[in-house]
Design a protein around this nucleic acid. Structure first.
Lengths: 232, 232
DNA sequence: CAGTGGTCTAGACCACTTG
DNA sequence: AAGTGGTCTAGACCACTGA
């Protein structure tokens, strides 16, 4: 956290750069350590207080810092950092391997898929089923559905790129539903589970910003290998 | 969305008032309707653009609006509004009824409770078990744990006030874990469930801002009556 | 009392889209 | 060329805390 000049924009907003520097600075500090006041930090970084505040506000929202009115800003406990570790494909830094079990394009699909994707019952649907592995250990099985009309021929040619969900999560909204059930018999052995094992299926519906549903994912999670956890 | 003056502060920040007015204004509009530009809105409300932006930014974050770079700001589809409808006690506007099944203060508790609340194995623990009802239909059973030392005698006297979780969620952090399991036999009939019904237990750990764990809740959810759903 | 975070202003420039 | 959202500045006042 030294006094560096920020004239050399690298196309990145100043508050982003400051945010990253603060984040690195915080990393080494014990929880509940106070950090310097906003005026002092602004001076050190040679920016206005409003810009500095934007960086701090984001770090606060992500659970790196917390503020106390009229007292100061403090380093937050690491375990309080916000995260939503729910579905492998939708995790920020997923280091998973995927093994496509099969994929097809078919007319007619299950009614819940039609309902969620808001399509007529005679529309073509892309379906991909894949096993998700973490260091060769199966963590879940994902069934991915998308209306054919919403996929360009080019995207269909490069299915791996299409199935990288990062690109959608940023510029859209996701609704997730959690359903308790027995592991479906056809998936039990793939996940190394006995039949009648209770699992959680997470249904994720990715919307475009205008509200049109785009991709629907049913994720059958291994109860031990895939811990579902969020910090808010 | 008329041009009202904002001199009469009612202790509420201007951006809050504007946010509420915009929210009301939006309510009647169809999804994807563009709203006026920031400069025009700022003029209408007689505030600076930065203040106006703060109101809009919050509405965007909550899923009421979305912005498109260099294009404009639009009304978001209602179904994209952010929500985390997970545990009854922690829901924003819970209209549930609670029926305490029993409560006690005991030495020694289950090891997972000790672990999560970070207490020694000989510390006294308050435990409350209650049935949660939505219009007389049972939706879940909550086991609530809190270290006795963290509860004042006064709070203990007014248990209902203490168990109102609103007060903690604002000024703290919550970690929630989702566990698939069979309904515990002792709870099956209370929730009107057959034994061997798969359910989701949601474990919520409420922390103070300094990272100290405070309250631990195990919520056994009725799979049909309590739908677990989040929109992010 | 000095210092804190919270709010607010009235400007400014930028990159970009759209007619 | 006009309009958009995104960023940034250099001030200001407020209510509150804590020594």
């Amino acid at each position: 956290m030294n006094a560096k000049r920020y004239c050399m924009d690298m196309k990145k907003p100043i508050y982003q750069q400051i945010k990253e520097e603060l984040q690195a600075y915080i990393e080494g500090l014990a929880a509940n350590t106070p950090i310097p006041g906003e005026r002092e930090l602004a001076a050190r970084f040679h920016v206005s207080r409003m810009t500095l505040r934007k960086a701090v506000a984001q770090l606060e929202q992500e659970g790196y810092l917390y503020r106390e009115m009229n007292r100061g800003t403090f380093v937050a406990d690491k375990k309080l950092r916000k995260q939503a570790n729910i579905v492998p494909s939708l995790e920020a830094d997923h280091c998973y391997r995927y093994k496509v079990l099969y994929f097809d394009i078919k007319e007619r699909s299950e009614s819940d898929v039609q309902y969620n994707l808001e399509i007529a019952f005679d529309e073509y649907i892309l379906r991909v089923v894949r096993l998700v592995l973490n260091e060769n250990i199966p963590v879940c099985i994902e069934e991915i559905y998308c209306a054919r009309k919403n996929i360009s021929d080019e995207q269909l040619g490069n299915l791996n790129a299409f199935l990288n969900m990062d690109q959608y999560t940023q510029k859209g909204s996701i609704r997730q539903t959690f359903l308790p059930m027995m592991i479906p018999t056809q998936y039990a052995s793939l996940l190394h589970l006995k039949i009648n094992t209770p699992i959680i299926r997470v249904d994720s519906l990715i919307h475009k910003k205008d509200g049109r549903p785009f991709i629907y994912i049913k994720s059958y999670n291994h109860p031990e290998m895939k811990r579902i956890e969020i910090t808010i």
